[in-house]
């Protein structure tokens, strides 16, 4: 039982459940299954974004270019769709865009050893600029109706196809990270890159793969964004990187790397994107959105850090007392 509570994603899930329960107490209509499932459906873009960036954060790096990657891949995919090439061409094109940018990020961070925040910041500027060049500053509109309607098609009950697909992807990613040998490399590198290298884990390669996966996830999020919104502005996805990072933190990932999971990140994304909906049900205007997000984020990280520091202190005391006890035993 104690082990389960220590699990950070379980904590975030309990937090989400508690949130839903509390809001339901105040406004009964929130407890309807379709309302709750809609919270999940609406979070699909952020679910993919934060699951993608979770790979990078787990290795102890950061990627602030995913907002621009989302914008670029959405623009590329949407143009192909508009020109009648169909999803078979659009989705791979978008994914290639995401993977390419991810590869550049990975090489800059892992091979050239440039601090990740700074390198991806530069890439962010360039990619955002390319969006403007590619779209010539105009909106990409007139997406085929059979694509935009896809975001309202239900797979089972009220779960949309997109959320179902995202869920499957996240679960597969989560299982790979936690159950397979290579998947565990990500956490190992984030926990202690030097140590991981010493035991033979290719740290640089792992980081590059993390960035490529992050880009691919961002581009998939971009395609779903295109379907949900129906048009792409040149600023599409602006600021999403910060929200995705915030979602990861809410989901229990540590930005120093090595702690957290994909499941946690996706739960964080649901919390993050449900806040404005919850506010409506509580009778507040959505103007409080940012305030509540910031407040939640700060409270959760401060409490988390305090708990962690206390646990570390307790651990140290235990080790020390065990040592002194050992010495005493030898003397006797």
């Amino acid at each position: 039982m104690k082990n389960i509570l220590k699990n950070r994603e379980v904590n975030s899930f309990l937090f989400l459940a508690g949130l839903i329960f509390l809001v339901g107490l105040i406004n009964q209509s929130f407890w309807k299954p379709e309302t709750i499932i809609n919270c999940f459906n609406d979070s699909v873009v952020f679910t993919l974004l934060s699951a993608g960036i979770a790979f990078v954060i787990l290795t102890g790096e950061i990627d602030v270019s995913i907002g621009a990657v989302l914008g670029l891949s959405a623009a590329v995919g949407a143009t192909l769709l508009r020109d009648g090439y169909g999803i078979v061409a659009a989705l791979p094109a978008a994914i290639i865009v995401g993977a390419l940018v991810g590869l550049i990020n990975g090489i800059g961070v892992a091979v050239l050893n440039i601090p990740s925040l700074i390198f991806t910041l530069g890439v962010n500027g360039v990619v955002r600029g390319i969006v403007y060049v590619y779209t010539k500053g105009a909106w990409v509109e007139n997406l085929p109706a059979n694509y935009t309607i896809l975001s309202n098609r239900f797979l089972v009950g009220n779960v949309t196809y997109f959320y179902g697909a995202a869920l499957v992807i996240v679960i597969i990613g989560h299982l790979i990270l936690t159950k397979t040998r290579k998947g565990k490399y990500f956490v190992a590198v984030g926990d202690n890159a030097a140590g991981a290298t010493l035991v033979g884990i290719p740290a640089d390669k792992t980081k590059i793969i993390a960035y490529v996966l992050c880009g691919v996830f961002a581009s998939m999020a971009g395609m779903i964004y295109a379907s949900r919104i129906g048009f792409i502005t040149p600023t599409a996805g602006n600021g999403y990187e910060m929200k995705a990072i915030a979602a990861c933190v809410l989901g229990g990932l540590s930005l120093t790397g090595g702690i957290g999971s994909l499941a946690g990140a996706s739960i964080g994304a649901v919390i993050m994107s449900s806040i404005s909906r919850i506010l409506v049900f509580l009778g507040f205007s959505s103007d409080y959105d940012n305030t509540i997000t910031g407040f939640l984020l700060l409270t959760i990280v401060v409490i988390n850090t305090a708990v962690q520091n206390r646990a570390a202190l307790k651990n140290r005391h235990e080790i020390l007392s065990a040592r002194t006890a050992e010495k005493g035993g030898k003397k006797a």
Binding site: A246, S254, D289, T291, G294, L298, V301, V302, T305, N309
Partner: peptide, 19 residues
């Protein structure tokens, strides 16, 4: 409190924009 600067100022950016 020893929280990472990036996380705190990220939270701060949401909070102060909201305020």
């Amino acid at each position: 409190c020893g929280v990472q600067p990036m996380v705190v100022t990220l939270g701060g950016s949401f909070l102060y924009t909201g305020i």
